[in-house]
Nucleic acid binder design. Sequence first.
DNA 1: CTGAAAGCGCTAACAC
DNA 2: GTGTTAGCGCTTTCAG
Lengths: 334, 334
Amino acid sequence: MSSSNITIKDVAKKAGVSIATVSRFLNNPGSLKENNRKKVEKAVEGLDYKPLLYARRLAGGRINTFGLIIPGYEGIFYSYFALEILRGVAASLDREGTDLHLHISWDKDNFNSSLVEGVIFADVIENDQQLKRLLKEKTPLVVINKKIENEDVSYVAINNFKGGYDATEFLINHGHKKIAHFAGDLRVQCAQERLDGARAAMEKNGLKLLPEYTKITNFSRKETRENMEVLFASSNMPTAIFCCSDEVASEVLSFAEEKDIAVPESLSIIGFDDNPRLSYGSLMLTTVRQPLIEMSSVAVRILKDTIDKKMPPQRVILDTELIIRDTVTFLKYS
Amino acid sequence: MSSSNITIKDVAKKAGVSIATVSRFLNNPGSLKENNRKKVEKAVEGLDYKPLLYARRLAGGRINTFGLIIPGYEGIFYSYFALEILRGVAASLDREGTDLHLHISWDKDNFNSSLVEGVIFADVIENDQQLKRLLKEKTPLVVINKKIENEDVSYVAINNFKGGYDATEFLINHGHKKIAHFAGDLRVQCAQERLDGARAAMEKNGLKLLPEYTKITNFSRKETRENMEVLFASSNMPTAIFCCSDEVASEVLSFAEEKDIAVPESLSIIGFDDNPRLSYGSLMLTTVRQPLIEMSSVAVRILKDTIDKKMPPQRVILDTELIIRDTVTFLKYS
DNA sequence: CTGAAAGCGCTAACAC
DNA sequence: GTGTTAGCGCTTTCAG
């Protein structure tokens, strides 16, 4: 229905060769005699012929398309993280002349890998089964943002633990002791790791991350606000908050503004992401940068290598970077 | 290589029926006898069978995938427009259980439609040939953001002329006469239409959009700045600028801040897009909102209708809305 | 309602 | 180098 109807046969007839020769022209032009190559080339162009990729694929050929699976998990598709990964992957693939098949994955696991040559997971959240299935089907794949240790699979992630550690220690070095952490959904690996890092930094410095200062926001603005309200109502506000994401930090910032809590004088804040939305204006967020674009391009590179060169799974961990801006200050001893 | 290897044959054997029956089960389960349906169902689940979509497609079946083509045109993939269309289309398709095949289109026209059932163009910029080709191939398609009048093709666009007109008239109604327009690349239809609208509003009110106040920014921050510098160096600054995009308006805003030009007191500004990035903070941008998400979902619906119900091409024009915020004020007569 | 069989357009042995 | 031919896994007549 949606094809131009000209097939390899038409090209063969017009060029006066067999369909096998046309196929060879398509896949390995160098193997043709100059003379034939020209004839076929002319025929292909004259007919504006494009091979039917699914037929090619069925016969064992390449289709030059990678899949990108983004977990349906809450608002992740609207998160800075997901969009940036999407951008990065799309840009990298574009450079390679590969197309992108995007799949938002809910609980159904209805992704059919037959339309792609390999798959990139933008994190794995509650879709481990899907990952396992694709692995079993021998689909070449690479996971971004989650370290999968119990399977033989490529991943590219960041050192969330160190990111959390550094941010928290930075706060401690500024004299803070009453430090809170607004964590993400702890079922999400990076959230747990950031929390672990924060906790480790506290303990390393003879402090403790108090339970009443450890709040689960699930990366959500709404839950962030609820937690801020609880904290604010208590008579025991922390002097600094390390947040699991810039989005969460942004909500803390708004809350502080509403309640006239001076930032950073009365409350220091650190985010996580380096979302450009929060890097300009009169109060720029101090945050932990994660190299999302680089993660994407590394993932694409790895996937290409596993497909083209049948390279074994690779595991890459990239570093975060603390970006120091306006929202942290030395604690005033009053 | 990336398939689970279980085919319709295996299912048929396990269920004790013919492959034709399995095929029927897949496409129209209602046509089977209760008894057989159950047997096949059990076999499919037991084997974790997923049909190979390319084989299905080759045999004439459905694959449930739409293509989205975004022009490679400069930084469009990084624009608010493109990302929002992408989001909107992805969200709509997700609701329908349809997958998305994303293609960034450069000058090569190497998009192969055989992997999709229909195509959505996020604007058409210097890839008219591609559009024509797909049309010739009878690929079901719909164009977003460009009115294609000389072909029989569906589109969903907005009334850019009216958007430009309203914005400019709003400025005029605030006493402005020295109004500038920072236009986009005029080869892009919406840019031309916004300019036309601005010009019409001026003339309707006995004014004229002066050549020296009509600047081509090509939607780029850099060119916006260059134009601002020229304007600023001249002794004849406008009192208001209507910009072709929020991005451009944002650059004007930055420039004004740097040069201590008070906004809106000395310079009123209107953008176009309603990019949320500029809708908060201490100075919120007055702008023309275009319903990008709605455009996306309408496009998806039209495409589905043309494929499923073979509906004829549809043309939809949505309205813009002037969002009044902080950056326009009445001109002070000094 | 079900089975047999003929392709869909292409690639990949296998001969020549 | 090139042509012939046998499938790839599925849908779809066509009989029964």
